[in-house]
């Protein structure tokens, strides 16, 4: 399956190449006022990919058969395409200020393990080993200090870092119904009751990008950004702290103005 971010990157690169081919605003004509920053700043639209494979244990402890059950869903929360919009502008010299928004959503396969009380006997739990799917979306808002280093007229490298505000919307399991028959030793998931929780938290980001301009306005860039944070998700009688962010890499179209 192709990732959406990769497709977006290719599309942006193609658009930039098209602009250059049509001879719009050749880069040779740029004034020195523009430089790598542009007159006012730049905006880039990127397709990224969350490169890390990681799972989050989402624990819930509903009452089943008059006892507390423990259900742990471990969805794969990384390895997903992201959409990213970034803007930056010069403050002084090579120093600038940046702002970015990254969004990604995915319905994730989640292995589900559990300790489920027996219907007839206290303290004789059965083991659940099954799977389900859980939805999750991540919204990351980055603020960053930029250090832009022009390499040539066309090529520049930017390093950045700063705080990130994370908002995660995570489906969690609140309860289960089971497929089970006498003697009730073996169990499997029949239906899943889900709840969508929204949590937010501050973290941080750091990274760099490499930009290359084909014309006065248009260019492409590659971007690598690492962001990190944790959030507390409270479920029935349990709390989980899934990790947020990760190493995101990709590229897109960059426009200076």
């Amino acid at each position: 399956m192709e990732c959406g971010g990769c497709q977006l990157t290719r599309a942006l690169a193609l658009a930039a190449a098209l602009v250059e081919t049509l001879g719009l605003s050749p880069v040779r004509a740029q004034s020195s006022n523009w430089g790598a920053w542009g007159a006012n700043g730049y905006i880039s639209l990127n397709g990224l990919y969350d490169t890390e494979s990681r799972s989050s244990d989402l624990v819930t402890r509903p009452e089943i058969n008059l006892e507390e059950a423990t259900i742990t869903a471990s969805p794969e929360t990384g390895r997903k395409p992201l959409y990213d919009l970034t803007a930056g502008g010069r403050v002084r010299g090579n120093l600038g200020f940046g702002f970015g928004v990254t969004f990604g959503a995915k319905t994730e396969d989640a292995p589900v393990r559990g300790s489920i009380p027996h219907p007839f006997y206290f303290n004789q739990p059965r083991t659940l080993d099954d799977s389900t799917t859980l939805e999750r979306s991540d919204l990351l808002v980055h603020l960053a200090a930029l250090w832009l280093l022009p390499v040539t007229d066309r090529l520049a490298v930017t390093a950045f870092g700063g705080p990130t505000w994370f908002q995660v919307k995570q489906e969690t399991i609140t309860n289960l119904t089971l497929r089970e028959t006498f003697p009730f030793d073996r169990i499997a998931i029949d239906t899943v009751e889900r709840e969508r929780l929204t949590r937010s938290r501050w973290g941080y980001n750091a990274g760099f990008d490499v930009s290359y301009y084909f014309s006065r306005y248009f260019g492409v860039q590659g971007l690598v950004r690492y962001s990190n944070g944790t959030v507390t998700i409270s479920t029935t009688r349990a709390e989980s702290e899934p990790k947020l962010g990760g190493l995101h890499a990709g590229g897109g179209l960059r426009v200076r103005y």
Binding site: N65, L66, H118, P119, F120, F122
Partner: peptide
Amino acid sequence: IGGGRGVLGDNKKLS
């Protein structure tokens, strides 16, 4: 599944 205490006061589940 119901519950209650038996003759000796112990907790039991009932089908």
